[in-house]
Amino acid sequence: MKALQVSNVTKSYDKDPVLRGVSFSLETGERAALMGPSGSGKSTLLNCIGGIDRPDEGEIVIQGQSLKGLDETELCHMRRVMVSTVFQFFHLLPTLSAAENIEFPLQLSGMSDSDRRSLLPELIKEVGLSHRSHAMPHELSGGEMQRVAIARALAIRPKLILADEPTGNLDSTTGEVILDLLEAVSERHGIAMLVVTHSPGVTRICSRTLEMRDGVLVEQSELAV
């Protein structure tokens, strides 16, 4: 079963077309880089896949589940169990500690206290933050914040992670470490990953690139990993 199937998706804002018939798919555990200049429609596509926005036409299917016709609550449920997002600016909840941020989606999904307690240390350890679990977001470095964001994305064991410029706000050394981490968790848990990036360096963890321009997917190329 494909982790993600995007078929002929179009989207316009105020009659201004942003996505024009985008189609592609990702296999389970596959990682692809989505590239393109600013305004090419990358973030809109990501929002549509994440169920934050709805396409005007076309269909998006995640792990066999079509998003078409789902109401708001069902889309929310889908985000809770199947798709996670990692952002450029980390978007940690500033009033929650690192551990609480990671625990939050588990609470949302209704996981029991005991299950959460056993899973949480594992997640923190996986991203190498055991010594910083009680720190508040403003006490963390950029790399540490992104590790927390990755652990939070991993918490629900998603089928798909959408990463929006995950290294865009980090220095190059930290960025490399984060890419390694993303690659490792994808490999370990068989999670498909769509990474939006401007940086060609990011493609080193991906098996192919998708190039967008003016709302159209102009090129798909296989990469030697």
């Binding site: 985000r79 940690l92 909840l93 949302l108």
Partner: peptide, 15 residues
């Protein structure tokens, strides 16, 4: 921004 994050984590409008 936090609301966007909450929504991306699956929080509904009611939540």
């Amino acid at each position: 921004t936090e609301l966007t994050t909450l929504k991306s984590l699956g929080a509904t409008r009611r939540e």
